[in-house]
Nucleic acid binder design. Sequence first.
RNA 1: GCCCUCGUAGCUCAGUGGAUAGAGCAUCCCCCUCCUAAGGGGAGGGUCGCAGGUUCGAUUCCUGCCGUGGGCGCCA
Length: 593
Amino acid sequence: MTGLGYNPPIRRTPPDMNYIEPKAHLADLFRQAVAAVAPDGTVAIELDRPKQASHGDYACNAAMQLARALKRNPREVAAEIIAALPASERVKKVEIAGPGFINCFLKPIAKQCLVGHVLAQGGDYGRTDGGKGEKVQVEFVSANPTGPLHVGHGRGAAFGASLANCLAFAGHDVYREYYVNDAGRQMDILAVSTWLRYLELNGEFVEFPGNAYQGDYVKRMAEGIYALHGDRYKRAAADVLAGAPDRGEAPEEHLDHLIACAKRLLGPDYAYIHGYALEEQLGDGRNDLTEFGVTFDHWFSERTLHDAGLIDRHVATLQKHGHIYEQDGALWFRSTAFGDEKDRVVKRENGIYTYFAADIAYHLNKFERGFDRVIDVWGADHHGYIPRVKGALKAAGADPERLTVALVQFAVLWEGGQKKSMSTRAGQYVTLRELRGEVGNDACRFFYVLRKSDQHLDFDLDLAKSQSNENPVYYIQYAHARISRVLAAWGGDVRDLHDADPTLLAHTSELALLGRLAEFPEVCAAAAREMAPHLVAYYLKDLAADLHGLYVACQFLVDDEALKQARLALVAATRQTLANGLALLGVSAPDQM
RNA sequence: GCCCUCGUAGCUCAGUGGAUAGAGCAUCCCCCUCCUAAGGGGAGGGUCGCAGGUUCGAUUCCUGCCGUGGGCGCCA
């Protein structure tokens, strides 16, 4: 094919270079045909991509669906539908197959013109508007700021962030929020843990409770306070322990006693210790998440609910509507009236609101802030909590259907073939920061969402540490890097490729890649609709495989200038799509590896 | 006991009311004179937990059973 036999390609003007989404186009044709064949029949037009290439590009099952209503042979109905199909320049042929499928074969041009479309869309390729600007709040992570984030939180972070990205890409107006539990007993325990360590630095030794926070970060906070304020918060150990219940027999009461003593002995200074610990841990978590590529529009403080009287107000509202009753000195929400298994306390005998009461106020507040829809990303262990929250929303006159809870199963850590026990208070766990350090942010983000969120995730540390190069994320990133290297070797401007003639793309591998690229918007929309960002991850693996296949099958930098332009345009469009998908998952798209 | 989840190849997991159920890893074989072999091609490997039901059609939906994991606090 060189020398005398070489003929320069003739640049033809294609019939219509404007990209029309093939599926939408076919659906439109079928709607018209079905309306003609069965004016009374209501049947949803479904077009699937057949697994086998011999079954065409799209298959329609409308005939089989209609056959029942019309009480006729599906293949006969199919024949009539085909006869009624309006002509289209983009359809090569349609045929009846099997029990009554209508298989559609597109003309190559219908797929080829996608290349220019992708390049023109750029970072917006894959974006859809099905969300119609609906205001959606996604609340995720929301870990207690009582210590470093661990690998379980990491999964919620990666999932929530990717989900939020997918929703935004699908046309929703997304608001990312972190609920800060800064008002409860756990924070008091952290404050006291810090203070006890601080007392040790001052020579006052109170035996450190086994159920207080054990981690070294607590000691570091104590050192920080000591460095700033010396012995200002020092109190006598004997005073702290005076009258304390036995720590062995009643550890929780013992701890509560210490908390009460700290508040009494420190007076207004207790708020400083509490605040210091809170800010340190919150800052640490924020830092950690930011490095992980996870950011929030707002960090919502639980304490503001108490301070602003929102809990009082919302509980009073429930009370006014007769959903609250008093028993044993406590206030109960009658959640059994809304499908819960038992009623729940909202205000304890000691006058303190429960976490649940704060959560009622928080969720009602979300709707008051004008969100059309609220998504909570929770650990799967909270599933029993859903009925009472939805019940409370209903009782307060809000629509529980507007709250969706996405449950994320725990990531269980394995090392040396053994499950690693995780205890936050004992300080025995692998932190998110450690995990990121071991396997890198990209592999972390990708690995976390490679599984359906409601599926248990076995995180094998040994595998992640020793064989991180086998992680599928590299396979995808490599595809991106390969394209970048080719384009760099070419040395031209990608913008000049927009006008390349895509009709030259006729190789099997090229057509396969074109078909895959066309799926991207639907995949993104499905990921948002089904709250399943793993669909994007799996799609990217398939897309990368198609690219690698083409890479081996076809040389891109060929002598034929027009063909070279066409192929470079195709791979540039592929690179764009890979980058768009990786961005949704918070994974980088490197130009070289 | 009740509620939820999952059960698909040796392992880890995708997937779908449709035609011959897929990928990675593992095993075996092959491919760099060539834009990065972190790549590609091929082989073997399955009663889609079991039993009913709905349907023209069920691995997919429903029910029951068995098994896995989790949850059932005046903790957060």
